[in-house]
Design a protein around this nucleic acid. Structure first.
Lengths: 113, 113
DNA sequence: TTGACTTATGTCGATATTCGATATATCATG
DNA sequence: CATGATATATCGAATATCGACATAAGTCAA
């Protein structure tokens, strides 16, 4: 089944921050883990992920550090800051509020009309 | 609490079609009913609603008819077509899939790492 | 009666989000 | 040695939403 990607847009930041709650991770790893944890529902594209990570870093929610490596291209690990952790908690609450409201509307309007 | 409007963006079309499932409605009425049924969580702006209605009409999901009136500005009522009804069912299913995946990710990754 | 508020539909430009395409580079596997 | 996986990144296009603005009729109180 082809899913409309825009159905939950705006929540990608929340998902990424949530992944970092468990510990530092690098971009590609996040893509993989998100696919796994969501049973292939969320497939983050590189064109979405990397600009998003830069934005989250600019906002102070995450910080980056580079894995030391001689030969190959270094991995950029990201770390969830205290500010990011607070922001994540707020966003999680917001999502629950929205999801609850959605359920209410989808339940039907028989009792209202 | 100020809610981030973009958190569930993309689902507005689904909400509007859902409202029309109960019967024909006009734009302003949808705004009111959506606010009521969602306990003030969803507040549809006119700048969002009217262009959206025109788009849904173009796609054949809804049809419009004007309330007969001599003096005042006529209300534009919208009707859910069969195509729209099918589309609504698909979108509802998609939303449930996404919401389920969201819950899985937000549950935490302890069991995965 | 005048001013404010609600009802009602609509456009426009700005902003944000996401995707697809493209680019680059390393490593493992056949 | 070519293909695919790993890994990060940019760019332009498409889309969604909002805030501001415009218009116009009805209601209600000072």
């Amino acid at each position: 089944m082809k899913l409309d990607k825009s159905l939950l847009s705006g929540s990608t930041g929340l998902l990424v921050l949530k992944l970092l709650e468990d510990g530092d991770k690098y971009g590609y790893q996040m893509t993989e883990e998100l696919r796994r944890r969501s049973d292939k529902t969320f497939e983050l594209k590189s064109g979405t992920l990397y600009p998003l990570l830069h934005t989250l870093e600019q906002k102070g929610y995450i910080t980056a550090w580079e894995e030391a490596s001689d030969s190959s291209r270094p991995r950029r690990y990201y770390h969830l800051t205290d500010t990011g952790r607070k922001h994540l908690a707020e966003k999680e609450q917001e999502w629950r509020t929205y999801a609850d409201a959605m359920v209410k509307v989808l339940k039907g309007g028989e009792g209202y009309a």
